[in-house]
Nucleic acid binder design. Structure first.
Length: 357
RNA sequence: GCCGAGGUAGCUCAGUUGGCAGAGCACAGCCCUGAAAAGGCUGGUGUCGACAGUUCGAUUCUGUCCCUCGGCA
């Protein structure tokens, strides 16, 4: 027998201890399960949440909209009864939901869970929303419809070049960072300047995503590109045979036009164009799948560069119960490092280095 | 077998009166601090079907062959 003996832990006991009110307040533990669309987060998350007797806090910029259910793969009522899901159905499709709004309501939910001695468990694929919890959001002014309307006028009068020229004048540093064609980000930077009188670049320099509100464990799920793409196609086929077209039609009939941010989401955009006879059904399916593949790719680009994610590769044959077990194992290990930082310093350095933020 | 029409990027094709091969789509890589399922940027060496001939130089012209799709037998 050689090597160092790792002490045996009673994980359930430690977990209960970790979730004692004073410890929750002390460590502010947070677990995030992330990954690209269709990788299989939801089913795993439900099992994991059940195991830890907690809830699922969704980090999904589309499931926040009421009435958008099939297209956003929102958990069903039955699933939500099994395990409570929060941060869903927060806004109507005509409202402009955004990262700041998400952060405020998510922090409230997390505090509520701490008060109930439960471990907050965030699950989703919207990288920016997750980042607002794990690394914060700079205290720039919120989006303002009046300023935006004004900027739109400027856009109409003098085009993208006019917007960009103004940004070069008031915030050359941000202008240098942004491409003149990236209208929405150029407008946001102008909005920040008009509302605060300060260049956004200065605020970013001051913030630098350095907030640390939680001891966070980030777990990422990934699959091979081929497997992920196949799952995307299967899910879209399922959505289309289970009411996606009807759901989109109903939203349009309620007056939610295709110009809304919510209606520009995957699926709704393509089905909406199909209903407007811009192209036929087959073309709609092709684009829906293609655009979802592209999205998954963008998600992976974002997540890959996020430091501190513990990645779990899922094999094709792996049942989701097994994936859930692996996630649970990582979480229990994480809880140990919180509970007994002295003994597990080595452990933290080695195995959990990647997953802790 | 004969007569047409073709063979150029993963796909559909354009093109070179002989001089470093180019579009769309697909795909790939990337950026992001209140629209993030949004928005934006970048990426083309490919035996130009094969072999030979003419030429300083052939993907382009000529010849032979191979393959595909029509039509006729």
């Amino acid at each position: 027998m050689g090597g160092i003996k790792v002490p045996e832990y009673d994980n359930q006991l430690l977990l209960r201890e970790c979730m004692l009110p004073e410890n929750l307040r002390r460590y502010r533990p947070l677990v995030v399960l992330l990954g690209p669309t269709a990788v299989g987060k939801s089913r795993v998350a439900t099992q994991v949440a059940k195991h830890f007797d907690t809830e699922v806090l969704t980090a999904d910029s589309r499931q926040v909209y009421r009435g958008m259910n099939i297209g956003t793969d929102k958990p069903t009522a039955a699933g939500r009864q099994d395990v409570p899901h929060r941060l869903i159905d927060l806004a109507d499709p005509h409202e402009v939901f955004n990262a700041g709004w998400y952060r405020r309501v998510a922090l409230d939910e997390i505090d509520r869970l701490y008060a109930a001695n439960r471990l907050p468990f965030v699950v989703g694929g919207t990288g920016l929303y997750i980042k607002t919890l794990v690394r914060g959001l700079c205290p720039a002014p919120q989006a303002d419809p009046l300023v935006r309307a004004d900027l739109k006028k400027l856009r109409e009068a003098s085009g993208r070049a006019g917007l960009y020229a103004e940004l070069m004048r008031v915030d050359p540093e941000t202008a240098a960072r942004l491409h003149p064609n990236d209208e929405s980000k150029v407008m946001r930077a102008l909005e920040v300047y008009r509302l605060s009188g300060r260049p956004m670049s200065i605020m970013h320099d001051e913030h630098r995503f350095q907030e640390k509100l939680f001891s966070a464990l980030l777990i990422g799920l990934q699959r091979t590109k081929e497997a992920l793409y196949r799952r995307i196609e299967e899910r879209i086929d399922w959505q289309l045979t289970h009411g996606m077209v009807e759901e989109t039609r109903s939203l349009l009939d309620q007056g939610y036009g295709c110009g809304l941010a919510s209606m520009k989401g995957l699926g709704y955009r393509q089905v909406g164009a199909f209903l407007a006879n811009e192209y036929d059904y087959e073309e709609m399916v092709r684009r829906f799948k293609r655009d979802t593949r592209r999205f998954a790719k963008r998600q992976m680009t974002w997540f890959r560069k996020e430091s501190g994610v513990a990645w779990l590769s899922i094999e094709e044959s792996e049942p989701c119960e097994r994936t859930a077990e692996r996630v649970i194992a990582l979480m229990e290990q994480f809880v140990r490092t919180l509970e007994a930082p002295a003994q597990s310093a080595a452990l933290q350095q080695t195995t959990l280095e990647k997953g802790c933020v």
